[in-house]
Design a protein around this nucleic acid. Structure first.
Lengths: 338, 338
DNA sequence: GTGAAAGCGCTAACAG
DNA sequence: CTGTTAGCGCTTTCAC
């Protein structure tokens, strides 16, 4: 072993194992990939040879030959957000269990459909792909389409899905939050929103629905990226002078909402009497806040698992179905802040 | 385009482009990989052909041939933790900029050196590897050693590094926290710790140092996984009866510490007079808490960036150096809770 | 600056 | 159940 360690890369290949075991390379391949088609005696010999030589099959070569890389690419904006962290985690776990490695690409907000990114990923010939729904350049869309692999878009219900999709309409979600507040008799609305396009879609839906119902939208504050607890606190301080009556506030993330809750407590603002707050995400922060605040639950972990299941089904050879476009259910989790 | 879309995988290959451009395949390869060695005229022809056919080079084939996959593997326990999320994010960004894709493997706590995981990853012939330092099985250690690729371990200073390392001694960090409290005159100590081995190492270092200095360690509470804000709150409630004097508390994560701070406020406990609190991580939560609490800053993002730099240096052909084993500086960030 | 030949290490397909 | 023959699509190497 120490001697072999000097050679770059493990030099042991399938022919070495075959020679050692006194069989053909193909038999070694079968022992590894389809063990049930090899006699127990041969299997034992080959396994011993593999063990002895420390053979690690070259999946690159296997992939080239079989035209299946056993890799899937995943594009998400970031993993610094619990929603995407949970999504990636559950997706990766599920794919790993099925024998697939995940190539993770972090696009940053707004570059999910970036052609260069899609190109390099596709160059690796992934067997499938997960993409955080976004606007694609026409070329990127075409590349994905022509790749001929199952693709699942998540989070956002796009107008023209490439293939499969699991997501929801962000503007519609915002509208639901507005309705929730309207039902409670609110007629003064404020929103704090991160700069990313989906957050802004939620806010737009929220404000539009409020206006449509005849309510006043006092303010829609766009928080500079990254939106943090601190920016929630700052935002509340900034609009404090305008907070003269019973007001409903929708924050595009639980981080912001948590900051608002903290600042409200420090300022002695009555929640929910003067200020009612709703976040987005249903992260631990929302329930652990004191008092806990109302938020919208979106299932990151479930989405990742479902996305994996849908892709694996296709990879197993099943044809497209009606259920390939799935609406992720979200729900408003009501707590003490509203 | 629509016609081609039916064929599985993009069927366009380098020979197609070569034929279209009227050159040899090798010339196409050069246009892509070493453009400066091709005449402008030829380059233009080839680029046009690539564009026209929508050619996406097969990096799998290229990797097999060149024996460089341009992929790096990264093993971390989870990305649901800001520390590792930041690490992975910065590492991925830096590697992407250098033309490398990251294969992410989430090991869960305690399986970082799992042989099966290492094997499948190595099978993909990554050009380099990042591992969250851990105990390896002898076989896994040997496999990594023999892989002949640059490997960097992060977070934990291991006794016998495989290759490069960037990390710190967790027990020593715990001892520093104890010293910090001792210097403030504390002589009653409590620790809340997550189940993972590194968290426990920190707690052990903390408790040992406290005892060595003659202080009393009232309690070392191990919090069931996952350690959350809520478990911090519960933990504090549980030890409340024992909190009869001025006490120093070290939490193995900012999550736990935040829960403690929240619960302390609810219970009307005087912080830091009755209970002094120190967290770990210096995440947003620690600064955004009201009052903000003392914590230990560890640079996840910096570590990821440095790890990438160190690996890239080796990949560029530079030989090992003395500085391949790096101590990550950490520091206690003092705030209102101590 | 460009091309031709010869693999990289594995597996599909077909024998036997 | 096992072996043989051909590649997979690219790049290395060596000519020219």
């Amino acid at each position: 072993m120490a001697a072999a360690a000097r050679g770059k890369h493990t030099p042991v290949k399938i022919t070495d194992v075959a020679a050692e075991a006194g069989v053909a390379p193909m038999t070694v391949s079968r022992v590894i990939n389809t063990p049930d088609r090899v006699s127990p005696a041969t299997t034992a010999k080959v396994r011993a040879a593999i063990e002895k030589l420390g053979y690690v099959p070259n999946l690159i070569a296997g992939g080239l030959s079989s035209r299946r890389s056993r890799m899937v690419a995943a594009i998400v904006p970031t993993i610094a957000h619990p929603m995407f962290a949970g999504l990636v985690q559950s997706f990766t776990d599920a794919m790993r269990d099925a024998g697939y490695q995940v190539m993770l690409a972090l696009s940053g907000y707004g570059n999910d459909g970036d052609e260069a990114l899609v190109r390099t990923l596709l160059g690796r010939r992934p067997d499938a792909m997960l993409i955080t729904g976004a606007e694609y350049t026409p070329m990127a869309w075409q590349l994905l389409q022509e790749a001929g692999i199952p693709i699942i878009e998540v989070w956002e219900r796009t107008a023209r899905p490439i293939d499969m999709l699991i997501g929801f309409d962000h503007a519609e979600l915002g509208a639901r939050v507005a309705e929730f507040f309207l039902a409670k008799g609110h007629d003064r609305f404020v929103a704090f929103t991160a700069v990313d396009s989906r957050a802004q879609a939620r806010t737009r839906g929220f404000a539009d629905a409020a206006r449509k119902a005849g309510a006043t939208v006092l303010r829609t504050r766009v928080v500079p990226a990254p939106s943090t607890i601190m920016s929630g606190r700052e935002s509340l301080r900034e609009i404090l002078p305008e907070l003269t009556g019973r007001t409903a506030l929708f924050c595009s993330s639980d981080q912001l909402a948590f900051g608002v809750m903290t600042e409200a407590r420090m300022q002695g603002l009555a929640v929910p009497d003067l200020l009612a707050v709703c976040g987005f995400g249903n992260f631990e922060l929302s329930a652990a806040s004191e008092p806990p605040f109302t938020t919208v639950n979106v299932e990151g972990v479930t989405t990742g698992r479902m996305a994996a299941e849908m892709l694996l089904r296709r990879l197993a050879g099943e044809p497209p179905r009606d259920t390939d476009i799935v609406e992720v259910p979200y729900r408003i989790v009501e707590r003490a802040s509203t």
